[in-house]
Computed example of a mutant assay.
Amino acid sequence: MKSILKLFVLALLLQSFQCDEDRQDPITEQQLNLLKQEIVDYIDSFECENSENCNTIAFGVKPCGGPIEYLTFPSSVDLNELEAMVESYNQLNLEYNIQTNAVSDCAFVLPPQTVECDNGSCIIVDN
């Protein structure tokens, strides 16, 4: 079932990367939220064993540049798959920002200083 959902989202993303003149529907916040949830669900399907197995990845694109936040993930994930999913999200987020003339605070979001494994999940302890 998960692979069918992934294929559906991938097909949706591939359609969204067509040239602007071919785009018929604008990107919606709901599309971004669904894609983010898929990424979070993917990460949550893996467990960490200890804090040394936890990593972070920049996620989202602020209108003035830089990531919106950092996601934590255990090293047991397929890093290539996670990076591809996040890159797809970031590209869609960038297009959404352009379409909506989005603005932000332009504050630079730093990577977390401390990430730990807590009950099988990687969490940000402080930032």
Rank of each mutant, 00 (worst) to 15 (best):
75 S>H: 10
114 T>I: 08
115 V>E: 00
88 S>I: 03
68 I>F: 14
3 S>W: 13
7 L>S: 10
18 Q>W: 14
115 V>L: 03
55 N>P: 01
96 Y>P: 01
94 L>R: 09
46 F>K: 00
67 P>H: 04
110 L>C: 10
24 Q>R: 08
92 L>H: 03
92 L>N: 03
118 D>S: 07
123 I>H: 11
47 E>S: 11
39 I>A: 01
97 N>A: 08
92 L>T: 03
23 R>V: 03
36 K>D: 05
43 I>K: 00
114 T>S: 07
111 P>C: 06
18 Q>T: 12
104 S>T: 08
74 P>W: 15
55 N>V: 01
120 G>Y: 08
19 C>D: 14
54 C>W: 01
53 N>F: 06
26 P>R: 08
14 L>F: 13
50 N>W: 11
46 F>R: 00
11 A>L: 12
29 E>Q: 08
17 F>E: 13
61 V>W: 03
43 I>A: 00
106 C>R: 01
92 L>R: 02
38 E>C: 07
113 Q>E: 14
21 E>F: 08
19 C>P: 05
30 Q>V: 05
29 E>S: 14
26 P>D: 08
102 A>D: 09
28 T>N: 06
76 S>K: 10
102 A>T: 07
31 Q>M: 15
55 N>H: 15
112 P>C: 04
118 D>E: 15
84 A>V: 09
70 Y>F: 11
106 C>Q: 03
42 Y>K: 01
23 R>G: 06
9 V>E: 13
103 V>K: 14
66 G>C: 07
21 E>I: 15
50 N>V: 01
110 L>M: 11
46 F>P: 01
55 N>A: 10
22 D>H: 07
57 I>V: 08
81 E>T: 10
15 Q>L: 15
119 N>V: 04
113 Q>P: 01
30 Q>T: 07
61 V>Q: 09
109 V>S: 02
99 Q>P: 00
46 F>L: 02
97 N>Y: 09
26 P>Y: 13
59 F>E: 00
4 I>E: 11
12 L>C: 07
52 E>V: 05
24 Q>K: 12
124 I>E: 07
5 L>R: 10
7 L>C: 11
120 G>M: 02
76 S>T: 15
34 L>M: 14
61 V>E: 05
68 I>H: 09
5 L>V: 10
110 L>S: 14
90 N>R: 04
111 P>T: 05
116 E>K: 13
1 M>G: 15
90 N>P: 01
109 V>I: 12
51 S>I: 00
21 E>C: 10
